[in-house]
Design a protein around this nucleic acid. Structure first.
Length: 261
DNA sequence: AAACTACAAGATGCAGCGAG
DNA sequence: CTCGCTGCATCTTGTAGTTT
């Protein structure tokens, strides 16, 4: 159990799909958070947004999600953005947003997929609220949140899921669960991402990031086998041991191959 | 029963504030 | 300064009451 603290950072912005895409266009490798903020302000891409709000979006949402690890997420997404469908980008945004905001990742892993598997039709903000209250009881927050903050963070969790396509959109307190499945682009990216971080082939299969997409170890193996048909890798499964032959030399190489397919 | 209206309740965008 | 939390304003949605 990663005992990372939960924060209310999601409140600075939920999915921000369109804003993220616009910022990726403006961002250049090597650009700092502050520079991006300035470029965005002067670009005219955000005519209706105040400087204060832009600071929220860039510093509290874009930077923690995509400018970590030497900005590699931003660099990769920028490479992909022009070529791959929005649905693929949104899955990767979900991945990075969940890593930046552990409360969202845990909510998806523990509540969303449990409800999905249980055959429920919808998830309510009340349900999300119960999750938040339990987290506070478990000392996952630095202090006990106020009543309004609990209610709002609960709504942000479901709202963010809606932005990324896991739940029905719109301002609702009870959202329908939508069919959701990892795409080949997202799974190939995640597999190579974990590999490039130094995870062994077997440890990689059970990494918690797969559970954002509701995938068990066996689901991951099946998915990697499908990817092998596309030539991304070679998978050898013998009993409990899995060996993967990695075809691409780097994340950059993978992104280029995906873009050209 | 359907359509319309008015109002309450809820959701979200935004920005200020205190702590460190 | 940055980070994390919360209050406020606005917009959206649900609903009760009224009219057709």
């Amino acid at each position: 159990m990663a005992s990372v603290q939960y924060t209310t950072q999601l409140q600075a912005g939920l999915g921000l799909v369109a804003e993220t895409k616009a910022l990726l266009d403006l961002w250049r490798p090597g650009m700092s958070t502050r520079q991006l903020q300035e470029v965005a302000r002067e670009s005219g891409s955000f005519p209706t947004i105040t400087a204060r709000r832009l600071r929220n979006i860039v510093n509290e949402c874009f930077a923690p999600r995509y400018l970590i690890s030497d900005a590699s997420p931003a660099a990769h997404l920028k490479r992909l953005a022009a070529y791959v469908p929005m649905a693929d980008l949104m899955q990767l945004m979900l991945l990075f947003t969940s890593r930046a905001n552990p409360i969202l990742g845990d909510f998806i892993r523990e509540i969303y997929w449990a409800r999905y598997a249980g055959g429920y039709q919808q998830i309510s903000n009340e349900g999300a609220r119960a999750f938040v209250e339990r987290a506070i009881d478990d000392n996952r927050t630095s202090k006990r949140w106020s009543e309004t903050t609990v209610r709002r963070v609960a709504a942000y969790l479901t709202g963010c899921c809606a932005d990324y396509g896991l739940l029905e959109k719109g301002a609702k307190s009870n959202r329908r669960i939508l069919p959701y499945r990892v795409t080949p682009t997202a799974s190939a990216y995640l597999a190579y991402d974990l590999h490039s971080k130094g995870l062994g082939d077997n440890a990689l299969l059970t990494h918690q990031d797969w559970q954002l997409f509701g995938m068990s170890r066996e689901d991951v193996i099946d998915e990697l086998k499908r990817l092998s048909l596309k030539g991304h890798m070679i998978v050898q499964a013998a009993g409990d041991v899995v060996r993967i032959g990695w075809k691409h030399q780097s994340m950059e190489a993978l992104c280029d191959v995906i873009s050209k397919s």
